Computed example of a mutant assay.
Amino acid sequence: MDKKECFDCEFYSFGTTKLFENRANKYGTRLKRIAFLGLLSPVILGGFVAAFSTDNEMLKQILIPLCGLLTIGQAIYSLFSLTYKWDEKYSYAIGAIKDNARLTSEFGKLKKLADSEISEQYPKLREEYDRQLVADTAQSITKEEERYAMRQSLLHFKSQCPTCNEIPKKLASTDCDTCGNF
Rank of each mutant, 00 (worst) to 15 (best):
G180E: 13
N25H: 12
E120P: 07
F157R: 12
L103Y: 01
K170V: 11
F20T: 10
G46A: 14
S153H: 06
G73N: 11
D99Y: 00
I141L: 12
C176W: 00
I118Q: 09
G47N: 14
E146N: 04
T104C: 03
S13P: 04
K158L: 05
S78R: 11
Y90E: 09
L59M: 14
R102N: 05
L31T: 12
E5P: 12
K89T: 07
C67W: 01
P162E: 15
F182G: 06
L125I: 02
R126A: 03
K111R: 15
T71D: 06
E145A: 09
L70T: 10
N56H: 04
E166D: 05
M150E: 10
L171G: 12
N165K: 09
D87I: 08
A138H: 08
L70I: 13
D87V: 06
R23H: 15
G180P: 14
K158R: 14
C9T: 12
K85C: 03
C67L: 04
L171R: 10
E88H: 06
D55P: 04
Y122L: 10
Y27D: 14
P42K: 10
Y122T: 08
R102E: 03
D87M: 04
Y122I: 05
C67I: 08
V49K: 06
K3Y: 06
A101W: 00
E117I: 05
G38D: 15
A24C: 02
P123F: 14
F11M: 02
L39P: 11
F48V: 09
Y92L: 08
S159W: 02
N100F: 01
D115W: 01
T83D: 10
T178C: 07
E10G: 13
K60M: 03
D99H: 00
T17A: 00
T71M: 04
G28T: 11
S53L: 08
T17R: 01
I62Y: 08
A50E: 11
K143N: 11
N25D: 15
T137W: 01
K3V: 13
E117A: 08
S105P: 04
E127F: 01
E106R: 00
C164L: 05
A138W: 03
K98M: 03
S159H: 06
R102M: 03
K143R: 09
C6Y: 00
L113M: 11
P42M: 10
I118R: 06
S13Q: 02
L31C: 09
L66P: 02
I62L: 13
P168C: 05
I72G: 13
Q61C: 01
F107C: 01
E5R: 14
I62S: 12
E106G: 01
K158D: 14
I76T: 15
S53K: 08
L171K: 08
T104K: 02
D175M: 01
A24Q: 06
S153V: 10
F14H: 03
